[in-house]
């Protein structure tokens, strides 16, 4: 907890939290939203394709969506760390924050599994069977849940510490 408090008191964290500049907290939050759109948007295209939407898009072309996903993830990992340090003691004690991280972790593992399955299926599209559809559905649900958990972090805030 002391460690988190010291992060939160660092000049960078104070700048993010207190600066009136639109580049500080508001700008970082905007990048976090942009990264979300790139990451979840690109993954949703892959998921929808595996669920049968847009069959004119060859499976082999889905490969180009994964670098976009990693770009979105990188933007959100960086902006997420910055948002975290600006409010570390509070965010680190919010259970919903860990729910969000867990959902993202599982969704990313699934994205990796799907990429391998797509790679194997490009030579034999028949190999892409019910399991791919299940994974795609789970992926969509996980991302929707991760977004919801992230949004609820603003509402399930901790009570201010009690003064004894």
């Amino acid at each position: 907890m002391e460690f988190l408090a010291s992060i939160e008191a660092s000049p960078l964290a104070e700048w993010i939290r207190l600066s009136p500049s639109l580049w500080a907290y508001p700008g970082i939050l905007t990048f976090h939203t942009l990264g979300l759109a790139i990451l979840v948007g690109a993954n949703a295209v892959v998921d929808l394709r595996l669920l049968g939407v847009g069959k004119g898009l060859p499976l082999s072309k889905l490969d180009s969506f994964f670098p976009a996903m990693w770009l979105g993830f990188a933007i959100n990992a960086i902006s997420g760390v910055l948002l975290f340090i600006s409010d570390a003691t509070n965010k680190a004690t919010q259970p919903i924050f860990y729910v969000k991280l867990g959902l993202i972790a599982v969704a990313l593992v699934i994205a990796g599994v799907m990429r391998r399955m797509i790679g194997e299926a490009t030579s034999d599209p028949a190999a892409l069977s019910p399991r791919a559809r299940t994974l795609a559905t789970v992926s969509l649900v996980l991302w929707a849940a991760a977004i919801t958990a992230g949004r609820f972090m603003a509402y399930l805030n901790n009570e201010p510490p009690e003064v004894i």
């Binding site: 939203t33 979300l36 759109a37 790139i38 979840v40 948007g41 690109a42 949703a44 295209v45 969506f65 991302w143 929707a144 977004i147 919801t148 992230g150 949004r151 609820f152 603003a154 509402y155």
Partner: peptide, 21 residues
């Protein structure tokens, strides 16, 4: 309100992700 906000961000990802592609 928070439920609609969550849906608004989910809709945003679908809209911007697909339109952007």
């Amino acid at each position: 309100w928070p439920i609609c906000e969550s849906l608004h961000f989910i809709g945003l990802a679908l809209l911007v992700g697909i339109t952007g592609t």
